[in-house]
Design a protein around this nucleic acid. Structure first.
Lengths: 344, 344
DNA sequence: TCAGTATATGTAATCGATTACGCAAACATA
DNA sequence: TATGTTTGCGTAATCGATTACATATACTGA
C-alpha cells in the first residue's frame, strides 16, 4: 500500500514549491502556462487526487450534506433521498443519512452530530413533535448552516422548505369522493402537530363545506400510518349508527387496512364505499383493487430541496433567504374511488 | 455567529498549552487529575466540540463509510441501508450513500469518489456487469480500505460478503410449488452475470432434479425485474403448446406482472397455476391474492454487513480477513402458492 | 539606462487536533 | 548529598492544502 500523492510530492518531482502546484491545480492566474502544464501532466502521471479532508479542514466546508428522515425504508423518504442524491452528487456533494424513528431526542442528536461533522447543510423532515428541538434548529441557522425542511416542516425563521400543497391534496381527494356521489365521508389523519396533516384535514373540511356537506367529527380519526390502525378505525366507523360511505385517508397503509376490513364484511368497493389514500405508495397501483391516492412527487421534492440548498449555499453569506416551495399534488384516481369509469 | 471553541481557546482560558488540553480530553495518562478536571469543566462550559475534520486529516480516518447500491428507492436496498445505519451510527460512523443505477461507469466513479473522500470502508451491492470494475475494487483492497459486498457479490481476494443462500431460496420455493402438485414449473431469472441469479436458478434446477422433473429450457426466461417484463414473459409461456402450471420468479415484480395476465386470462390462482416470488416486497403481502415470496431479511443483511465491517476495522491492519456470511432465506408462503390451506 | 510595472515563484501562516520528544520539578533511594 | 526515576507539561512537527505577503526576474517606456 503506497501513500497517496500530495502536492508536496509533485512539487519535489518538479523542483518547485507546493504553493505553485496548488496554484496550477486551481486555475490561479498567478502561475505561468508552462508550469501549469507541467504540473497538470505530473499530477496525472502520479495519480494525484486532492485530499478532501485537508481541504475541508482549511475551508471549513466538508462537501457533505446531512439528510434526516424518520426512516429510510419507506418508499416516500427513499425517493426523496434519491432525488437529493441525484441532484447533489453531480456538483460534488455527498449525502449523509440519519434516521430519527420519530424520536425527538434522536433527532436533536442527529442534528448535533451532523453539525459536529461540519456538514455544509441539513435537509430534513421533522419528526412528530410539537415545539421540541426548536432551539437546536435555530442554532443551525445561527451557525449559517443552510437548513431546509421537506414535507414535514414547521416555521422557524431563516429555514426554507419544500412541501406539497397538502391542503389542495386533501381538498381534491375529498372533492373526487363527493363527485362520485359520496356524502358521508370519513377521514383518517395523522399527528396534528405536523402541518402536513393539519393541512390535509383542512382541505378535507373545505371540500365538504364547499359542497354543502356538514362536517361530522365522529367521522374523523387521528391514527398512525399503518394497516392495523386503519383496520381498527374502520371497525369503529362501521359500528356508528350512520356509517360513512367513503374514506379519505392521509395514509395509504391505513386506507389498505380499511379496504381489507370492508371486503371482509362484504362491503363492495367502490360501489358501496369509496376510498382515497395519500402518498401513492407503490402497492396502491399494484392491488387488484387499485387504490386511488394523492401523489406527493417525492423524487421531485428531493430534487427541489437540493436545489434550494444549492441556491442558499451560493448566495451571499450574510443575506438570509427563506424560500418556501410548494409543489402541486397530483391525484391518481384508481378503482377504489371510480364508480363511473373502468380503470385498470 | 461565533467561531466554534477549539482546544486553543480552552488552553488560553486556563493558561496551559493545547497539548495538555488534548491529553486531558483523550484520557491520556500523562496529565494530572487536577488539570484534567479543570479542562473537562472548562470544555463543557465553553461548549467545546471536537473538530472531526481536523481529527480526520491527522488520523486519515474520516469516520464515514460509503454505501453503494443500484438504487435507494427500493424496499430491499433501503432496508439494508437502514440496517447498516442503525448498526454503525451508535459507534460514531456516518454513512454516505451512492447510487449506481446499474451502471458500471457510475459504479467505478462512486468508488473513486468515496476513496477520495477517505471513507473508512465501502459496503456495496455490485451492479449488473461481468468482470468490469474488478481492478478498481482490487485497488480498494490494496489501500487497506475494508470492502464488503452484500447481496450481489463476486469473488475478489480480500473482499468479505454477506448474502443469503440464494440456492436454498430457489430450491425451497421450487420445492414448495412441487409439493403443491405442480410439475410444469416455469422460471423467471435475472442477469446471469450475477451470482444471486445463477444460484437461484441452480436451486430451481436441483429441486426439479431431486423430484424427478425434467428441466425444460423453454420454461426459463431471463428478464428484468419489473411488472411489464413479467407480463410479456408469461404471455410467451402461455402460448407454448404445453404451458406451465406454476412459476418461480426471482423477482416479485415480474411475478406480479405474470399474475395480472393470468387473471386477465381467467386462469385461477392457485388452483390452476401457482406462483412464487422472491424478495418479499411489501406489496406481496398486501395483495388480496397475496404472493408467496422468499424473504431475504435485508435489515439483518445490512446489520451483518456493518458488523463485518467493524470486525475488519478492529482487526490487526496487516491481517487480511475475508469473511463470507450466508444468511438463511425464509419462505413466506401465501395464497398464490397454497392450494391446500387457507391463508390470509 | 533606469525607474516602474507585471509576472512568476517562494516563504510561511493557517485550519484544529494529536503526539514524539525534551525538560524541569518532585520524589525516591542509597 | 548525589543520583535515578516519575510525573506533568511545554515545544514543535505533522496531517495536506490554500493564500497573503514578500521577492526576484523580466519587461516596458522615456
Amino acid at each position: 500500500m503506497t501513500r497517496r500523492t500530495t502536492i508536496y510530492d509533485i512539487a519535489k518531482e518538479l523542483d518547485i514549491t507546493a504553493a505553485s502546484v496548488s496554484r496550477a491545480l486551481n486555475n490561479n492566474p498567478k502561475i505561468s502556462e508552462s508550469t501549469r502544464k507541467l504540473v497538470l501532466e505530473t499530477a496525472a502521471k502520479m495519480n494525484y487526487k486532492q485530499n478532501r479532508l485537508a481541504l475541508a479542514l482549511r475551508s471549513g466546508k466538508s462537501n457533505n450534506v446531512g439528510v434526516i428522515v424518520p426512516r429510510i425504508d419507506s418508499n416516500f423518504f427513499a425517493s426523496i433521498i434519491r432525488g437529493i442524491e441525484e441532484e447533489l452528487y453531480s456538483v460534488g456533494y455527498h449525502i449523509i443519512i440519519c434516521q430519527t424513528h420519530e424520536d425527538a431526542k434522536i433527532e436533536s442528536d442527529n442534528i448535533n452530530t451532523l453539525l459536529n461533522a461540519q456538514v455544509d447543510g441539513i435537509l430534513m423532515s421533522i419528526s412528530n413533535v410539537i415545539n421540541e428541538n426548536n432551539d437546536i434548529m435555530k442554532r443551525v441557522v445561527d451557525k449559517n448552516v443552510p437548513l431546509i425542511f421537506f414535507d414535514r416542516k414547521k416555521h422557524i425563521d431563516g429555514v426554507s422548505s419544500v412541501t406539497i400543497d397538502d391542503f389542495e391534496g386533501g381538498y381534491l381527494a375529498t372533492k373526487q369522493l363527493i363527485d362520485e356521489g359520496c356524502n358521508r365521508i370519513a377521514h383518517f389523519t395523522g399527528d396534528q402537530s405536523l402541518e402536513i396533516f393539519q393541512n390535509r384535514t383542512k382541505g378535507y373540511k373545505k371540500a365538504l363545506e364547499d359542497n354543502g356537506i356538514l362536517f361530522d367529527s365522529n367521522y374523523v380519526f387521528q391514527i398512525k400510518s399503518n394497516v392495523d390502525a386503519g383496520r381498527l378505525a374502520i371497525e369503529k366507523l362501521l359500528s356508528l349508527e350512520n356509517p360513512p360511505d367513503a374514506l379519505f385517508s392521509t395514509s395509504d397503509f391505513a386506507a389498505l387496512g380499511a379496504i381489507q376490513v370492508l371486503k371482509e364484511k362484504g362491503i363492495t368497493i367502490p360501489e358501496e364505499f369509496c376510498v382515497f389514500g395519500f402518498g401513492n405508495e407503490p402497492f396502491t397501483k399494484f392491488m387488484e383493487l387499485s387504490i386511488s391516492s394523492v401523489d406527493q412527487s417525492p423524487l421531485e421534492m428531493g430534487k427541489m430541496a437540493a436545489k434550494v440548498f444549492l441556491e442558499q449555499i451560493n448566495n451571499n453569506e450574510n443575506l438570509k433567504i427563506e424560500k418556501k416551495v410548494i409543489l402541486k399534488p397530483e391525484l391518481h384516481i384508481r378503482k377504489s374511488s371510480s364508480r363511473n369509469s373502468n380503470l385498470r
